[in-house]
Every structure is written in C-alpha cells, then in structure tokens.
Simulated scan of single mutants.
Amino acid sequence: MVQITGLKNILICTDGSEFSGGAIREGLRLVKKTGARVAVVSVIDFNPELQALAPDLVDKMETDIRKHLSVIREEAARESIELEAFTRLSTTPYIEIAKEAERTGADLIVMGRRGKTGLKRLLMGSVTKRVIGHAPCSVLVVPREAKLECKKILCAVDGSVYANAAAAEAVMISKRCGADLTLISVVHAETASAFDIVHSQMHHDLIAENELRVAESGLKSAKEFAEKEDVRCESIVLAGKPYEVIVNSALKKSADLIVMGSHGRTGVDKLLMGSVAERVVGNSECAVLVVKARK
C-alpha cells in the first residue's frame, strides 16, 4: 500500500511542457517531505519516420529535454534534493514510463495532464491515461496549478476491490496528515440533481434500490475502517453522473486531493481504466491519486 507520507521511491514524469509544471513542483515537495528517493524521466515520443526525414528535429527535441531536466536538477539542488534525471526515446512512451517505474522501484508515479478542453467530455491525453492503466504502482496526477496540501481529502467509493484499496489509502493518508476526509459514493440518476438529493431523500422510482444498497454498503465498510484507525470522516451518497458529482464535490469541499481506484494493468495496448476515473482525472482542478489494487 502506498502512503503519501511514507514513500521510498518516486518517479516524476515530464514532457517538458507547461502542463508538467504542477507534477514537478508538487513531486519535489513530496520528496522533500518524505525523504524518498526520486528519479525524473522524460520520454520522447519517437517516430522512426520522422527521424529518417528530419534527424535534426529529433536531435533538437533531445537537446531541449536535456536542458529542461538540467533546470529541474538545479531546482532540486536548491532544496538539497539529489535526483536521477534521464531521457528516453520510445514509440510507446507509456510503456517506457511503466518500465522505468519497475526499474527504479517506484511506489508512486507523479505526472501532469493536459489542460481541460472546452468540452465536458474528457480529453486528458493518451499518455497519462495509459500510464495509469499500465503502471505497476499508484499514480498521482497533478494539474498545472494544483497544490497538494493533504488537508482535505475526498475519496470515491463504489464497493469494488479497487475502490476499497483507494479508501484504505485515503484513510491512511488522512491519519498521517491529519486531513479532513470525505467518503463519497455516487448512484446514477438521469434527472436528479447531484446536490439536491441525498440518500435519505431519494425516490425509489429514481434510484435503483440495489445500487443504493451497494453504495451504502461500500461506504459503511470504508467508514468502519476509518473509525478503526481513529480517523473521523464524513460519508455521503449522492445521485447524478459519477464523475461530475465527484469533481463538483471536491470543489464544494475545497479538497486538495481526490483518491480513487483503478483497474489493474490490462493485457492490451488500449487502456481499460474506467470512464469515471478517467473523467475525474481529466476534469478535476485538484490532484488525483489513482490507487492500483494489488492482485
């Protein structure tokens, strides 16, 4: 189990763009707080055809990334942080990042994500979502402007083994950091307002009774674990589109971290991470910790 305050090895990923700024800043802060070893990797999306047609362009990309990594080294040195920084060329960057996580023994990958689009539908970038799907460890996704304080944490629970792992993680982080913890479970409601209806007010013709029972059961188990660890928490059931409710609840609670589960690694190239987790990561204004359940 990964605890944000008890990490041993962290891998920070950067693509050299402004969208990696939050991951670099908060990743180094996390290293400073925990004393973990850290490595920084930048994987260039290698295109053999491009190299054949424009070798100078590829060389420039490598040179620019090395300069970017040099700046990160200097920033880390000012905080007395020693780090390993390296660049890689790969036709499948997400696979290369997963391999580097294995090689460095990372128990957490920290990375950024592309900015929101004008659409409500998620477009968070294939590398980030595929890293989450293939990584051997949990992944912390940090939007550019997000700050990770671990003061107010929101954890999404749905009764699955993946959500249970996330809830256990959220409880331990809250315990170690003294954070306020909110456990939330969302049931679907096509016409219900997510914030006007709580479980005590739900109409049976609107919410499937079985779905509500599963949601309440998952919350009960998570809350019992929190109480066992002497962590006080609020638990709520809301209705609506799950990713919208989770993201809006985090805003309402002023959460600086959302914790949620993900399916384990897939055996295919295309990510099967789950649309709710994917959309929360893509639309959240705060950091999102995607916990990988051990098989």
Rank of each mutant, 00 (worst) to 15 (best):
R78Y: 12
F46A: 01
E84V: 15
R113G: 01
P48L: 05
Y94Q: 05
A106D: 04
G112S: 04
F86K: 13
G112N: 05
S90P: 01
D107Y: 13
K60P: 00
S90A: 09
I109Y: 04
E145R: 11
T104L: 10
E100Q: 15
E102N: 14
T63S: 13
D56I: 05
G115Q: 07
L50A: 05
K120D: 14
G115C: 04
T91C: 11
A85V: 01
K120H: 12
L53W: 07
I97K: 00
C137V: 11
Q51L: 11
D64G: 01
I65S: 01
V110T: 02
V142N: 04
E96S: 14
N47I: 05
V58F: 00
K60D: 09
A101L: 07
C137H: 00
V141H: 02
P136K: 05
R130N: 15
K67I: 00
I72Y: 06
S70Y: 10
A76I: 06
D56P: 06
L89Q: 14
Y94S: 08
L89N: 12
K129V: 15
G105W: 09
F46G: 04
G115D: 03
L123W: 11
I132G: 02
K99C: 06
D56G: 10
D107V: 10
K99M: 05
T87Q: 08
L119N: 09
G118T: 13
A52R: 13
E145F: 04
E49S: 13
H134A: 07
A76C: 08
I109S: 02
I81C: 10
K120N: 14
D56Y: 05
S126T: 10
H68L: 08
L108N: 03
P55V: 08
K129S: 15
I81M: 11
D45Q: 08
R114P: 02
A85N: 09
E62K: 13
D56M: 07
L140V: 04
